[in-house]
């Protein structure tokens, strides 16, 4: 697997551990939510760099209190049609204010990059041989967006010159 981060192909220093694999203390580790829950204290003690992988159905609420100690949250796409992780990514960024890496893993296709990047993902595990150029091209295929999301794009309605409405909370 290769990793695209910040638009570049990079070496991945993280290791994704199976639940029964013994951890090596010096290597940055990504573990499942189940393992994190079971071995939380020991894991946080032994690993300065720790990440958790969430499956669809495991919402960020499950790790909300530990987010400031986790450097990576990997959101798994067992199938590209399961879009729950798009909501999880937005919640991580917008609700929980998470600043670490939000990584897309599993079935990650070029044609989803744009959606993922807009939803708050900043790292993508891709097939060996996938090029960073293709990634960049995919995120640029459509210049402007109609809606505000997690990325820095200003929505088209704002570009049209209107000022954002005062965000009023629901009465």
């Amino acid at each position: 697997m290769a990793l695209i981060k910040n638009g570049r192909l990079t070496a991945d220093r993280w290791h994704l551990y199976e639940d029964d694999a013994p951890l090596q203390p010096d290597i940055p580790a990504i573990v499942s939510l189940a393992r994190f829950k079971a071995e939380r204290d020991a894991l946080l003690r032994a690993h300065a760099d720790l990440g958790v992988r969430l499956e669809p159905g495991e919402t960020p609420d499950a790790i909300a209190d530990d987010l400031d100690r986790l450097s990576v949250i990997a959101l798994n796409f067992p199938s590209f049609t399961d879009g729950r992780a798009y909501s999880y990514a937005r919640l991580l960024r917008e609700r929980h204010g998470y600043k670490g890496e939000v990584r897309a893993v599993g079935n990650v296709l070029r044609d989803q990059y744009l959606f993922m990047a807009r939803a708050g993902f900043d790292a993508f595990e891709v097939k060996e041989g996938e090029s960073a150029e293709a990634f960049l091209a995919a995120t640029k295929a459509v210049t402007n967006a109609y809606q505000r999301a997690t990325d820095t794009r200003r929505p088209i309605w704002e570009l049209r010159g209107a000022q954002p409405a005062i965000a009023a909370a629901a009465e």
């Binding site: 879009g83 967006a145 109609y146 809606q147």
Partner: peptide
């Protein structure tokens, strides 16, 4: 709003 919505396309 719904066109290529980044969260609601899957």
């Amino acid at each position: 709003w719904s066109s290529l919505h980044p969260e609601f396309s899957f």
